[in-house]
Structures are given as C-alpha cells and as structure tokens.
Write a protein that binds this DNA or RNA. Structure first.
Lengths: 114, 114
DNA sequence: TTGACATACCTTAAAATGTGAGGTATGGTG
DNA sequence: CACCATACCTCACATTTTAAGGTATGTCAA
C-alpha cells in the first residue's frame, strides 16, 4: 500500500491513514467511532466514509500497526483498535511526510513574492 | 472534474491544480517549465509528472481558467499559459479549500491534547 | 554530420485511493 | 413492532496520478 519513500508521498490521498493513527494514539477506538469522530473534530471539513476507514483498519492490523480486541461495552459488541509500538513509529513517519507536503505547498506559495 | 463544493474537497489529490494556478498567477509559463519548477521550488518533495500536469493544463483551458498562446522564445516554440480572471477566482477558491483541509488535519492533531 | 542529450509537447494503460451504495445484525425508543 | 442509530463489512465505480511510451526540435561535441 505504501512501501518505500517516494518523491510524492502518498499523502495527497493518505490523509485518512494519518488521522486514524492520530486518533488511536490518544485512546483505543472502534471503526464506527473513528468515522464519526473525524467528522466531529473537523466540523465536517473532512468526512471519510466507512468504505474508506474500515479497509484502512484492516490494512493497519495486517501490518501490525494496530491490534484489535472485541469488547462488550454499553450493551454493544465493538472491535476496539489500539496502536502498537510499530504503529507509533508509523504515525511519526506520516507526521513527517505530512509536514513535508504542507511545507512544499507553502514553498510554492512563498515563491510568488520572490 | 470538480463541480460542486463537497464535504471532502478533491484536495486530497488536487494539489497539482493548486500549484499550477499559483505558478501561473505569478507569470505566464509553459507546461514543461511548470513540471520542472514544482520540483525545483519544493526541492523534490513534490514531483508531478508530465502525464499529470499536461492534462491539467488542458482541463484548465477548457474551463477557461487559463488561456494559452504559442510563442517563439530562445529559438524554442512554446505554449505559454496565463491566468484569466476566472482563473484567479478559481485559485482563490482552491486556496480556501487547501486552508480548510490543513486546518482540519491540524484540528485532529490538536484534539490529542484536549 | 551524426550521435547524444535536453527541451517541449502529448497520450495511454495501469495503479492507487476514496466514494457511494449496498448488505447484515443488534439495541433502544415511541 | 416498526423504526432508527449503532456497528461491521464488501464491492463496483469514479477520480486522480504514475510510468512509460511516442513525436519533434535545438544544441553541442566528437
């Protein structure tokens, strides 16, 4: 899905992965909750569908960036995900890439005044 | 390609369009030059191929965001593009969306410390 | 003068990524 | 008991970018 460091980070699309990891870095959450939470925290500026988030969770688990455990909470059966050590590293790497992208975009803006 | 204002701006991919418009807001440029200039100004953090930029230029012209004129410069025949009034509006709109996206991404980060 | 390389434009198949719509099942509420 | 929110999931499709190709011209060195 994203192996080597490329010139163009897969960040022009990969924002969902960054946000999922960020949220899970705070606390364990389940898929449905993540979908709603992103809408809530971004005031609907971003709203990734379940068809985007669930596959990401499965990918992240396959890569051992997260691990999941089913829990019964509030009379509900939910699949809670939490970050692994590897996941924290992955998050740090993505933060880096996101930073690189936004700086790069800003650099082109700045050049207008050169 | 991008008609109505959606919840998720097409900005998770549309960075190339923003950069092209920004560059053209400064001065008239030709396709090949734009491809190289983005690499230069972003220090290769971003490097969109010709297969990405040329189709965008054609799209932008079809939408009357830019107009083109062939000129002979330095013994070279080049197709120079420049922004139209519509193009400036379009640029302003994209700046807005990009700002919304980065703020939204930052908001999720901020929430970690709430 | 010819061979190599950069410039300059373009197209196309394929990969990557996210959307939208669908499906299933459970729990609470009027 | 009907309805809606919760909770999980998948799949076909659309959009967007990549990678690789093609053509033509200009420059420069051998």
């Amino acid at each position: 899905m994203n192996k080597t460091a490329k010139t163009n980070p897969s960040f022009l699309n990969g924002v969902p992965e960054l946000l999922v990891l960020r949220l899970l870095a705070r606390r364990a959450m389940y898929g449905y909750e993540i979908v709603k939470e992103i809408q809530l925290q971004t005031k609907d500026a971003l709203a990734f569908g379940e068809g985007c988030i669930y596959p990401y969770l499965h990918y992240l688990e396959a890569e051992k960036f997260v691990k999941s455990a089913r829990r019964e909470v509030e009379g509900r059966s939910r699949n809670y995900y939490e970050l692994t050590r590897r996941g924290h590293k992955r998050l740090a790497a993505l933060e880096n890439e996101w930073s690189r992208v936004t700086l790069a975009v800003a650099a082109v803006k700045g050049a207008q005044y050169v």
